[in-house]
Nucleic acid binder design. Structure first.
Lengths: 182, 182
DNA sequence: TCCCTAAAGCAAAGATCATTGCGTTTAGTG
DNA sequence: CACTAAACGCAATGATCTTTGCTTTAGGGA
């Protein structure tokens, strides 16, 4: 048998330019019309690209949006470490809020919600892991489940149904309430 | 000026039959294929209804799904009224949990989440109105926003991302925590 | 019961989307 | 620098969705 055929994908030059143009177009359109109303010919026109190129690369609109909206929070980024759990959680929650203020990130969450049911989506599973890490580092103090229910869940709810209520003071308010009832 | 123009909408008989047929078809299809893959001609065929009727009533698929998701729980049903706000909220939350345990209801919520974000599409607005009513009837005692953030949001989060955590004691736990910190 | 018209049905036309074959460009490699 | 093929552009086609004018049915008040 011959060795690996080495597909030799092409990621630079023209392909990269198409990707960038499509990405911008998708972000704009998702913001303007909502992810459910974005079609591939629409994206192609705004990106100045042939629709066929998009069909060939992604297949359909949901896959495209799901793939492009991966402005995820880096799983490797440093987490807040001030020595105070409450402060750490507040800063961490603030990062999440700012992340989901990006329309593309919010669209990804909606897409994840729509496609969920079997398992939870990646970005939220990472958030749960991060909360666990923050709490363990502080030697406990708050159940992880409470952080999910009373910090993450309210943020997600607002991202999905009331994006305009993602205020600047939300993080400290939610975390503050988490510590108030104990 | 003449008296009230009296639009005289027709909600019974055939219209109601069409609505019921469409509702069933949408619930089935959303479960089978996911909200993003449900089209109006598809729904019309399964419902045994003319596509034009659906286009005229709802306009497009996301609106239709969002509307059906919004009004699946009757807005006119009697709300708990035990005289005790905490008890009322607990029973109310329990109703919501049991509702979303139905796969069709969960699927519609996912569809509503996917189509939300743009404008006034918010399939949970009735829940917010109900919470307001319960609290006002009791003469206050808890901010409505807190009920949304700490009772409704956790339930919705679990429905979307962790449906297996919709336990029987969840309602009393969430409402209990709502009253603990005050 | 009769009348008015809201709402559904039907059919045709128009718009948009998705697929496919083929030629062209060009990234990556020896 | 030449070669290979990955990725794009173009154009034609078929499928699907959406709109629109008109007709028919039937809800609900007089």
């Amino acid at each position: 048998m011959s060795a690996t055929p080495s597909p030799a994908r092409r990621t630079g030059g023209r392909s990269a330019a198409v990707l960038a143009a499509v990405r911008s177009a998708v972000e704009e359109l998702v913001q303007e019309r909502g992810s459910a109303q974005v079609t591939i010919p629409m994206v192609a026109e705004r990106a100045g690209v042939n629709p066929t190129s998009i069909y060939r690369r992604w297949g359909d609109a949901p896959s495209m949006i799901n793939d492009l909206a991966t402005y995820r929070i880096s799983p490797d980024r440093p987490l807040p470490d001030t020595g105070d759990l409450r402060e750490d959680l507040t800063r961490w929650a603030q990062e999440i809020i700012e992340h989901f203020r990006q329309p593309a990130a919010a669209a990804l969450l909606r897409g994840g919600a729509a496609g969920a049911g079997a398992g939870d989506s990646d970005c939220l599973r990472n958030r749960r892991a991060e909360a666990t890490l923050l709490i363990e580092r502080a030697g406990g103090g708050v159940p992880v489940g409470d952080v999910i229910d009373h910090v993450v869940a309210p943020i997600v709810y607002r991202v999905l149904f009331q994006p305009w209520t993602l205020t600047d003071d939300l993080a400290s308010a939610l975390v503050g309430r988490l510590f108030a009832g104990r």
